[in-house]
């Protein structure tokens, strides 16, 4: 990468630099600490309690998302983890992809995948129907059968 370093004492407005990298650096630390709590709890509740992984099915997810706390929990985890991971991968691309064209296209691909995934995940959480009308009753959470 060819980066021109401006002469010392160049006025800030002529350097054409921003603090974006500083904010990205701060974001990695702040989101990282939050993700530690969010993800460790997520893993503990889904894999350690009850029957662990064997209990995971549609009914389990529906039961969890019936509680707004878990909806917000998963939404926060989705956004923070995706942005944290995307920024991490951006750093890695900048470090190892030395050709300008390659670096550009890797980042275009990364940001496209990130946008699609965040939008899809957010829509799923907000439009989720725990009791789809045409589904077999034994696959649904118990509260669906209450008339």
């Amino acid at each position: 990468m060819t980066t021109t370093i401006p002469a010392p004492r160049t006025p800030r407005r002529l350097r054409g630099r921003t603090n974006t990298e500083l904010y990205a650096w701060m974001f990695m630390r702040a989101s990282g600490v939050l993700l530690l709590i969010l993800v460790f709890t997520h893993l503990f509740v889904n894999l350690m309690t009850g029957d662990g992984i064997n209990a995971l099915d549609f009914g389990f997810v529906a039961g969890k998302w019936a509680d707004p706390v878990w909806q917000v929990w998963d939404l926060l985890m989705l956004w923070l983890a995706m942005l944290h991971g995307t920024n991490g991968l951006r750093t890695i691309i900048n470090d190892y992809a030395e050709r300008d064209q390659l670096r550009l296209w890797l980042k275009v691909g990364l940001y496209t995948a990130t946008t699609i995934t965040i939008v899809l995940g957010t829509l799923v959480i907000f439009t989720f129907d725990p009791c789809p009308p045409d589904a077999a009753a034994d696959l649904l959470p118990s509260f669906c059968s209450v008339p």
Partner: peptide
Amino acid sequence: ILDTALVRVSP
């Protein structure tokens, strides 16, 4: 995220 999105397809 993609596998979880399947809850929106069908149980």
